[in-house]
Amino acid sequence: MPTATEKLHLSEIAPNVVQSEIRSMTVECDRLGGVNLAQGVCDTEPPAPVVEQAIQAIRDGRNIYTRLDGIAPLREAIARKLERDNSMTVDPESEVLVTSGATGGLYAAALALLNPGDEVIVFEPFYGYHLNTLISLRIKPVVVPMAEGSWEIDFDRVRSAITEKTRALIVNTPSNPCGKVFSLKELEIIAGIVEENDLFLFTDEIYEYFVYDGTRHISPATLPGMAERTISISGLSKTFSITGWRVGYLAASSRWLGAIGYFHDLTYVCSPSAFQYGAAAGLLDLPVSYYTGMAEEYKMKRDKLCSALQDAGFTPSIPPGAYYVLADVSSIEGANAKEKARTLLRERGIAAVAGTAFFAGGRGEKLLRFCFAKRTEDLDRACKLLRG
Rank of each mutant, 00 (worst) to 15 (best):
Q276G: 03
Q276W: 00
Q276A: 04
Y277P: 09
G278V: 06
G278M: 07
G278R: 10
G278L: 08
G278F: 08
G278T: 09
A279N: 05
A279W: 05
A279G: 02
A279E: 00
A279F: 09
A280H: 07
A280G: 02
A280I: 00
A280C: 01
A281Y: 07
A281G: 01
G282F: 07
G282W: 06
G282D: 07
G282Q: 04
G282V: 11
L283E: 05
L283T: 03
L283R: 07
L283I: 05
L284W: 08
L284Q: 12
D285E: 10
D285G: 06
L286P: 10
L286T: 12
V288S: 12
V288Q: 13
S289D: 14
S289G: 04
S289M: 09
Y290E: 06
Y290Q: 03
Y290D: 06
Y291D: 10
Y291L: 13
Y291V: 09
Y291E: 12
T292E: 10
T292I: 11
G293V: 14
G293K: 10
M294S: 15
M294A: 15
M294F: 15
M294W: 13
A295R: 08
A295Y: 09
E296Y: 12
E296V: 15
E296R: 12
E296A: 14
E296F: 13
E297K: 15
E297F: 15
E297N: 13
E297P: 08
E297I: 13
Y298E: 09
K299S: 09
K299H: 14
K299I: 09
M300V: 15
K301E: 04
K301W: 06
K301S: 06
K301C: 07
R302I: 02
D303N: 11
D303Y: 10
D303W: 05
D303H: 12
D303R: 11
K304M: 13
K304D: 04
K304R: 12
L305T: 03
L305G: 02
L305E: 01
C306H: 00
C306N: 02
S307N: 10
S307F: 07
S307W: 05
S307G: 07
S307H: 08
A308L: 11
A308V: 05
A308Y: 09
L309Q: 06
L309K: 03
Q310Y: 04
D311K: 06
D311F: 08
A312I: 01
A312D: 01
A312M: 00
A312F: 00
G313D: 00
G313W: 01
G313P: 00
F314S: 04
F314C: 05
T315I: 14
T315Q: 04
T315S: 04
T315C: 05
P316H: 05
P316L: 05
P316C: 05
P316Q: 03
